[in-house]
Amino acid sequence: MSITPFNIPIIPKLKRETILSLAKRGTRIDKRRLDQYRPIKLTLGVAGKAHGSALAEIGNTKVMAGVKVEVGRPFKDLPEMGVLNVNVELLPLASSEFEPGPPDENAIELARVIDRALREPGVVDLSDLVLIPGEKVLVVWLDIYVLDHDGNLFDAAMLAAMGALLNTKVPGYEVREDGSVEVTGPPRPLPVTKRVVSVTIGILGNVFLVDPSLEEEVVSDGKLVFAFDEGGKLVGLQKSGPAWLDLDRAGPAFNLAYSKYKELLDVLEKSIAENSPK
């Protein structure tokens, strides 16, 4: 059951007014332009025991992602496909608002939006992860760890997820004649066929704010998350939060997001280039 958050602090209406009046003048409380991201950083290979990992930072927001690859069973209806599992933990150390416990609706929504944006365009080639069709396949566990919450978790989580997948080395599994599986060969890169990034737009009355910080998110009505592949195809979309959106403002919101996705893609490409053996 989903319940209106009722234990949130009452936000001073003044702050909303301030952010709104600044936005009307084309600026923001941290002096950014309305379409400007905070500094973005992506570091690959941050967790040694993971098969792949990455840390994404957008301003003060920090999200880590780790990949573990294991041998498991395929889904009954997809016997010739590996399995991708995406999970998000909103860690209590990341914010005073987060409580320990199983993932709540916010963590589940975040995980499912990322999952869809990876799954639908086929970012990971799951058909390349089959050991014995219908019996044994590789299961990719993508765990997203939110370490510090200062707004825009979607874009940071997406970036960390993508970085971790591209950083993943799959152990060199081989199937023996008796059907057992052993690690014999050298590790190989996870078959990642596409790059996907997301662009989040905060909705505040009639104003759009790209990459909302936490203080902007708290006073916003909601946000729109757009996910794009490297070719600019729309591979995911989610309205999150109780905002409504004018029908004729959906196009401008899309165009705004579309004008920004290459920036995030550049960050992703750069960190991969820096990390690849020369």
Binding site: E120, V235, Q238, K239, W244, G251, Y258
Partner: peptide, 19 residues
């Protein structure tokens, strides 16, 4: 009121297909 209250996409579409 011409207001959108729910909007999601599961799948892949071209940019021009969104509007």
């Amino acid at each position: 009121l011409n207001k959108i209250v729910l909007l999601q996409l599961n799948g892949v579409i071209e940019p021009h297909e969104f509007p």
